[in-house]
Design a protein around this nucleic acid. Structure first.
Length: 693
RNA sequence: GCCACCGUAGCUCAGUGGUAGAGCACUCCCUUGGUAAGGGAGAGGUCAUGGGUUCAAGUCCCAUCGGUGGCUCCA
């Protein structure tokens, strides 16, 4: 007599074991029709799974109760669509072997091995989709059946797929005592696949799908293993959601910061300078400078002091910090002392001794310099430059510090993944008593930054150690302590929080801010990291009230992360329509004809006299329409159109880059509105002020 | 780093073995105008680089460099 507890807390009793479908039907016919699967005590299952004991049960439908697309429903739909796609491709390309086909963030993929010379081309997607549509139209049920391990292995051996056998072996290693299969239709007759499930009840429930792209992959992700073709697809409960998803992808393409960055002359990437090295053009440099000045002020108000450090440091510094040689693969090779270099060359008759040199670098006797991969070691040396009393603490150091990391060539991407970048870095050195308050200061700063930029939809992610990895430095006790403090601080923020093992920095846990941009994509931005380990490695201390030496705790904080990445993300978030305070050019003055050049100059002089604005006169011989078009394409927030009428009345006619003509106001009034929009960071705008007046 | 695709004027791109093209941008001339392209003329290219095949290569082959997508990675 199972007692079933539903998500709203209500309890239903059933006389005998029931399936998810029966529970749904007993609640209502609408739910029975909408049900895609069932969650039993948190475990996602097929809708027809039989429940024979007391359990918490939730019926999975396409939308969760808050009206959002339900993640479990998408999982079921996509996993099921992967089977349908695999069947379609196997029908189109006989002899194709299947490897592994899971749902992923925005859809699903299936790794496949095509027969010699029989690969799939993206031109054939339409054919695949056509077959998929047929399978879906047939509305065949997904039928699960399982068998003991030895029987299942025999079945797979007879089918001869080494990949599926491997999957089964993996499942057995993980402790499965039975192997399950899913037939799309009737077992033994229709297409089937070794699969853990679960699936939607039948193919007809896959409302909308699309085969997206091809990529290559390796078996087990190992480049020495078999090369596979990964076919990506996506699926949704209905066409509307799929269309929305495709529109978002299109929107994301249009917002690509590499394209807009070029169009608006913000940055340049030049192969002669090097992969992953950003050149800031004058327009991009304006945005960067505004953000730097904004943060400089905010930090100074919070008791940070500014320091500067060089771009390189001796190897021993990074041996102490733990950066070298442990992360040698992701660093530029060390710069060697001239003496070391010549000695090494002499010893080898002037020939190349790179290998020997590399070996020598790994030993502590040989020194050289490293382009700094992080700023912390330098800041630690600044802390060490004086003796500290507990009365001095906390010491809050800040710097826009440029660091260099040797990202693999395939990893560099526009501004968001680069080899040289400037962190808005800070390090707080404090006593254990001060730790919680200092973390709060950093968290408040990071939240203020997001609010001023207008990124108000974010969550925090607490990055914890991966217990199975050995890449971390420091004692287990320190890690536990630091993780505890981070979790508590993050909990106190009142925003959604996740904890993710394996996401910690190598020296300590971190609190990352993950913000959603204007089209719903998530980006990791600022970060606050607690660190007991570097102070330990460097033997830092302060003199306590007891006249004894104590170890300070460090907090690393970078609200932007890096300026390159942050601005790259902002370009995509705003699609180039930067808020006025960040816009490279804020106002463009367009005169109707050269006859009004004097008035245009007067307008510009009035704006310049107000101080701190970026305005320009377009004095090209073009017609007004052409000037408007150009200023709009260049995303200048406000165009001031001036002609005889304006000169006479002392007004400016304002055109907004996206709203068009918004009317005219007296010149001095416009300047005041402009000042208000810049200083309020867009909370009040010229646009709204003109419309309200 | 691995796999695939790509590299033609400042930018976006066409050109599939037979005399290097278009639009925009640029320079000059005409046009002086009220809310997203006025007209005309001109200049601009060792077709990424280096080899090879061919009577003939932007085009086919190889290598190198660079880019894009994906994999792996991301302190």
């Amino acid at each position: 007599m199972p007692r079933i507890t539903l998500p709203d807390g209500s309890v239903r009793e059933y006389a005998e074991a029931v399936s998810g479908a029966q529970i749904a039907a007993s609640i209502g016919p609408g739910l029975a029709k909408a049900a895609l699967g069932v969650k039993v005590n948190g475990e996602l299952s097929d809708l027809n799974r039989v429940i024979d004991r007391d359990a918490k049960v939730a019926i999975v439908t396409e939308k969760s109760r808050d009206g959002q697309l339900d993640a479990d429903a998408l999982y079921l739909l996509r996993h099921s669509a992967a089977h349908v796609m695999a069947e379609a491709i196997q029908r189109l390309k006989p002899g194709t072997q299947l490897v592994y086909g899971p749902p992923v963030d925005n859809g699903f993929y299936y790794d496949m091995r095509f027969p010699e010379g029989g690969g799939l081309s993206s031109d054939e997607f339409a054919e695949v989709e056509k077959i998929m549509a047929e399978i879906i139209k047939e509305n065949r049920p997904f039928c699960r059946y399982d068998m003991p391990v030895d029987e299942g292995m025999k079945k797979l051996q007879s089918e001869g797929s080494k990949y599926k056998l491997d999957n089964a072996e993996k499942a057995i290693e993980a402790g499965s005592d039975r192997l399950s299969f899913y037939a799309t239709g009737q077992p033994g007759k229709d297409w089937e696949d070794l699969c853990r499930g679960p699936h939607v009840p039948s193919t007809g429930r896959i409302g909308a799908f699309k085969v997206m792209s091809l990529a290559s992959s390796y078996w087990h992700g190992d480049e020495n293993s078999d090369r596979l073709t990964r076919v990506y697809g996506t699926a949704f409960a209905n066409q509307k959601d799929l269309d929305h998803h495709l529109k978002m992808l299109d929107e994301a393409r249009k917002r690509d910061h590499r394209v807009i960055g070029k169009q608006l002359h913000l940055i340049s990437l030049n192969e002669d300078v090097g992969t992953g090295l950003v050149l800031w053009l004058p327009n991009g440099a304006v945005i960067r400078r505004e953000l730097e000045e904004f943060l400089r002020k905010a930090r100074s108000e919070r008791g940070f002091v500014w320091v500067n450090t060089p771009h390189i440091g001796k190897l021993n510094l990074y041996r102490t910090s733990g950066h070298f040689p442990y992360y040698a693969d992701s660093q530029f090779p060390p710069l060697v002392d001239p003496e070391t270099l010549s000695a090494s060359l002499l010893a080898h008759g002037g020939g190349c001794a790179c290998g020997d040199l590399a070996n020598a670098m790994a030993s502590p006797e040989v020194d050289g310099f490293l382009l700094k991969p992080m700023n912390c070691p330098h800041h630690i040396k600044i802390y060490e430059a004086q003796q500290h009393s507990y009365r001095d603490l906390p010491v809050r150091l800040a710097e826009f510090g440029t660091v260099y990391r040797y990202e693999q060539s395939g990893e560099c991407h526009g501004m968001t993944r680069v080899r040289g970048f400037t962190q808005d870095d800070s390090h707080i050195f404090c006593t254990p008593d001060q730790l919680s308050r200092e973390i709060d200061i950093d968290i408040e700063l990071a939240r203020m930054v997001l609010a001023e930029i207008g990124l108000n939809d974010y969550r925090v992610r607490v990055g914890l150690r991966d217990p199975s990895s050995s890449k971390y430095v420091g004692s287990a006790e320190n890690w536990e302590l630091a993780e505890k403090v981070c979790i508590e601080s993050a909990k106190g923020m009142g925003v959604p929080m996740t904890m993710e093992p394996g996401e910690a920095a190598f020296y300590g846990p971190k609190i990352d801010f993950v913000a959603k941009d204007s089209i719903g994509r998530e980006w990791q931005l600022g970060t606050v990291q607690v660190d007991y380990n570097l102070p330990e490695r460097f033997g830092l201390n302060y003199i306590g009230a007891d006249n004894e030496k104590h170890r300070p705790i460090m907090i690393h904080c970078a609200p932007f992360g890096s300026l390159e990445r942050f601005i790259g993300i902002l370009i995509e978030h705003f699609a180039g329509d930067f808020p006025l305070w960040l816009s490279p050019e804020q106002v463009r003055i367009l005169m109707i004809s050269e006859k009004f050049a004097d008035y245009a100059a007067k307008v510009k002089a009035a704006i310049d006299a107000a101080g701190g604005f970026r305005a320009r006169i377009d004095d090209s011989p073009e017609r007004l329409q052409a000037k408007i078009r150009r200023a709009t394409e260049e995303k200048t927030p406000y165009m001031l159109i001036v002609g005889g009428k304006d000169a006479e009345a002392g007004t400016v006619s304002i055109r907004h880059r996206t709203e068009g003509d918004i009317g005219s106001v007296p010149l001095d009034q416009f300047v005041e509105m402009l000042r208000e929009e810049v200083s309020s960071h867009g909370r009040s705008t010229v646009l709204s002020a003109v419309r309200d007046s």
